[in-house]
Amino acid sequence: MSLAPPNFPDLKTGQVESYLHPSVSVPEGLNNNVLVTTVDRLYNWSRRSSMWPLLFGLACCAIEMIATASSRFDLSRFGMEVMRPSPRQSDLMIVSGTVTKKMVPAIVRIYNQMAEPRYVIAMGACATGGGPFKEGYNVVSGIDKYVPVDVYIPGCPPTPEALMFGLMKMHQKVDTQSVTTADWYKREGSAFVPVPQLGPDIFDPRQADLIRAETMSGEAVEADTGGGRAEGGVPGGLRNLGEKAKARIAQAKERAAARLAG
């Protein structure tokens, strides 16, 4: 086994390579001492090298997340050893575990409270798409149904290596963003995610109209028995509504409008 001594100038060149300005170049001879970069690159470098994840565990995957932070894998090499318990102080949410319907309102609230620019990593099969519990009546099939997700890490649970690979992907994504086009510097900012509500089943306020159209159509959605396909193979299509149903929807809308007005 050989451990060749590193050649420091080479090492340095290698390390700074990704920050060099794309067009401006430094004269030969100076390039070991002077570095020209862009604001974006510097800015992204500093952002991605000190992400503060939220101390937030949901299920089994959280245990692997803690293992990643422990001495063997040492998350602090990525500049993220300070896990903040408060969403106000963190900019990365690692959704580590099964998201249940009962928990979703809390998660969305936490997400809304996080400082921008904020990122979400869905760690594990469960947070990515429901995982082995996808069919469960209290399980949300993926946190991306409610908050935008930046990186998905499959695996059940993802090993610490897989999580770190996901974090590196996250860094890649940060690198592609630019100060000039970022949402969070725009005047209107980026929108809050409306908090889902626990009704007879959980519902997303953004989908209220869609839900009303179905439930009021007189043919409430019954679960399919047998077969895997949505009706006619067309996913997500609404069924044709009868006259009665349309009238009822109109009434419901009126009621809602009246309530808003009064």
Binding site: V139, P200, G218, V221, R229, P235
Partner: peptide
């Protein structure tokens, strides 16, 4: 499975139920 439900989520609501109410 998401494609089986109009709103793409594992939820179901009783008939005549109005989210606004």
């Amino acid at each position: 499975s998401e494609d089986k439900v109009p709103w793409g989520k594992n939820t179901r609501y009783p008939a005549d139920w109005d989210p606004d109410d």
